[in-house]
Amino acid sequence: MANCEVRSYRDLIVWQESMNLAEACYQLTMTFPKEELYGMTSQIRRSAASIPANISECYGREYRAEYIQFLRIAQGSLKELETHLLLSSRPKVKLTDTQTVTPILNQCESVGRLLRALIRSLQNKGSRE
């Protein structure tokens, strides 16, 4: 697939992986207590959905600098998501446990690496033109 032409943001591995991450977050928060619906559940879902949304929004931008800026916003949402996940598994909050959150945090790390690689690639492209 590495040699495939990218015709849409949906062809980007980083978008696909961030969608998988958002889906995992939705599944996780389904186990949270109902009283957290407007609290941590909402925060996790919002930040998780923001990552692929910003990747797709930036894809159509005319200028490389705008594209990179939206990817950086996606990075910020990713860090926000990680913080909410870590907080939700802290012993005094205990909405979930570390064992449940760890695989999702690993997905976060993977998406973060992909975002950084795409940003570097775009920056390097710009420096050669």
Rank of each mutant, 00 (worst) to 15 (best):
residue 1 M to L: 07
residue 1 M to N: 14
residue 1 M to P: 08
residue 4 C to E: 14
residue 7 R to S: 05
residue 8 S to M: 07
residue 15 W to A: 09
residue 17 E to H: 12
residue 22 A to M: 10
residue 22 A to S: 12
residue 22 A to F: 00
residue 25 C to P: 06
residue 26 Y to A: 02
residue 26 Y to Q: 07
residue 27 Q to G: 01
residue 30 M to W: 11
residue 31 T to N: 09
residue 31 T to F: 02
residue 33 P to K: 03
residue 34 K to T: 12
residue 34 K to N: 12
residue 37 L to M: 13
residue 39 G to Y: 03
residue 39 G to H: 00
residue 40 M to V: 08
residue 42 S to F: 10
residue 44 I to L: 11
residue 52 P to M: 06
residue 54 N to C: 07
residue 54 N to I: 04
residue 57 E to I: 01
residue 57 E to T: 10
residue 60 G to H: 03
residue 62 E to P: 13
residue 63 Y to V: 12
residue 64 R to G: 02
residue 65 A to P: 09
residue 68 I to M: 03
residue 69 Q to K: 11
residue 70 F to M: 13
residue 71 L to G: 00
residue 75 Q to R: 08
residue 77 S to A: 07
residue 78 L to N: 03
residue 78 L to G: 10
residue 78 L to P: 03
residue 79 K to I: 15
residue 80 E to P: 04
residue 81 L to H: 01
residue 86 L to M: 14
residue 89 S to Y: 13
residue 90 R to G: 15
residue 92 K to I: 08
residue 95 L to M: 05
residue 96 T to S: 04
residue 98 T to K: 13
residue 100 T to P: 00
residue 101 V to R: 00
residue 101 V to D: 02
residue 104 I to H: 00
residue 105 L to C: 06
residue 112 G to I: 06
residue 112 G to R: 04
residue 114 L to K: 08
residue 115 L to R: 00
residue 117 A to T: 11
residue 122 L to V: 07
residue 125 K to M: 10
residue 129 E to C: 03
